[in-house]
Amino acid sequence: MTSTPAPTVFGNVSLGYVVVETEKFSDWRRFGREAIGMHVDDALSDVLRFRLDDHACRFLLQRGPAEDTIALGWQLDDHGSFEKVLARVTAHGVPVTEGTAEDAELRGVERLARFAGPNGLNQEIFTRPRIADTPLRAAVRGGFVTGAAGIGHVAVTTKRPQQMRGYYASVFDARLSDHIDETISGVKVKIRFLRVNERHHSVAIAAVNRLPINPIRTRVQHVNIQVAELDDMTESYQRVKQSGFGMALGIGQHTNDRELSFYAKTPSGFEWEVGWNPLVVDEATWEPATYQGISIWGHTPEGQTVIDKLRQFGAGAASLLRREDVVGALSGTGMPDR
């Protein structure tokens, strides 16, 4: 007797938008429009929105003190997948809040729901994006790569990587693409890359090996977006430097997804990766692997000072005393690390 496979939302989910809380609207406006080259919509009071394509909103900046990413918005391709995710969350006793009409309007979506995510990063799900009324005005000639695989990815750091991986597997049927082992400033770090569709990863989870510390202040270590042409990536790199914004890592190529990219420093402190030409996963042939080091070449740190190092050390030390909520009811148990 053969068993029926459990229903899955894998392939029907993608990263649709990111919500940031900040008081630095002027700096973010320059960063998004002049440095990165995104379309800026600043018509609403206390709200700044960036577009990458015809969707009304891909990045929502709301006024507040966090200077951090506060929510991830996940698009479900159909109402059935939306209901499956809601059922999973509520079945484990995790409260779900229906988004208000104003919440949905700001995000440019229909049918919005919100629930808790690991380390205070709220998860929001929606089914239909609203299409913008005005033409896209972006400083990238070839455009940004979005489509069915979403806007890119986020990378997060954690003291409890297995539970965080279990969360995204339980809620969105995320699959492990591969691992990277890296040594940063003498500290060994393992990074797990999770995909929810053909994009190599929508979430990367980094953790210090065998040490309960998290050296990153913000909930998200970096946000990634992708351009369609190499020249757009290199020109964005030049604009970031010419605009006076900090550069975290220069241009380089990753070992696992082969993406060429650079990492800029956002006004709120987390990093912003602009990438080009990552590989696309073929589900029929893909096998997870482990890579040594994040880069084949490049990605050299730029402009890091001793003060930056000390701040990072202080953040890591402080994290020893900080409780990290991984939403245990949804984090799974016994998740194999492969």
Rank of each mutant, 00 (worst) to 15 (best):
T2K: 15
G334E: 05
A155N: 12
Q221F: 14
L15R: 02
V220Q: 04
P301S: 08
T4V: 15
L230G: 04
A113D: 00
R323I: 13
P118W: 07
Q221T: 09
P301H: 09
D133K: 13
V156H: 00
V145F: 05
R323L: 13
V227D: 00
P65N: 14
I251S: 00
T100Q: 05
Y237T: 10
Q221R: 12
T218W: 07
L76F: 01
G142I: 10
S14D: 06
T255F: 02
R88F: 01
R322N: 11
Y168S: 04
R239A: 10
I216R: 09
H201A: 08
M335F: 13
A248N: 15
R63G: 03
E259F: 12
Q162L: 11
P288H: 10
N12P: 04
H79T: 14
F144D: 00
S268D: 15
L86T: 10
R199Q: 10
R192H: 12
I307M: 13
L260Y: 10
G298H: 08
A206E: 03
P212Q: 05
D231T: 13
P267N: 08
G275L: 02
A148T: 07
R199M: 10
T305G: 03
R49Q: 11
G117N: 05
T134V: 15
I131L: 14
V223N: 03
I294P: 03
V19T: 11
A132I: 09
A248S: 14
K159G: 03
